[in-house]
Computed example of a mutant assay.
Amino acid sequence: MVQITYVDAKGTPRTVKGEVGSTVMETALRNNVPGIDAECGGACACATCHVYVAEEWQDRVGPAEPMEQDMLDFASDVRPNSRLCCQIRVTPEIDGLTVTTPARQG
Rank of each mutant, 00 (worst) to 15 (best):
C44L: 13
V61E: 02
D37F: 05
P13W: 11
V7D: 11
L72S: 14
I36E: 00
E19P: 00
A47L: 10
E39P: 00
R83P: 07
P80Y: 11
D70N: 15
E56G: 10
V20G: 00
M25V: 01
I94W: 06
I94C: 04
M25C: 01
E68M: 13
V61M: 08
D73N: 15
K17G: 07
V24R: 01
Y52C: 04
T5I: 12
G11V: 03
K17P: 00
M1H: 08
Q69N: 13
R104G: 06
M71R: 14
K17D: 05
A54S: 15
I94D: 03
V90N: 05
E19K: 05
E93C: 01
S82P: 06
N32M: 03
C85S: 15
M25D: 00
N81W: 09
P13G: 11
S22R: 10
R89Y: 04
M67C: 12
G96M: 12
Q69W: 11
Q3E: 15
C40W: 06
G42C: 03
V24M: 03
D70W: 12
R79A: 09
Q105P: 08
V78W: 09
M71C: 15
G35S: 04
T27R: 03
R89T: 14
Y52G: 04
C86W: 05
G106A: 13
L97F: 09
Y6G: 02
Y6R: 07
P102Q: 12
M1D: 08
W57A: 10
V33T: 01
V2C: 05
V33A: 01
H50Y: 05
G18Y: 02
T12K: 14
A28N: 01
G11M: 07
A9R: 01
D70T: 15
I36D: 00
T15D: 08
V16C: 10
N32H: 08
S82R: 14
M1K: 09
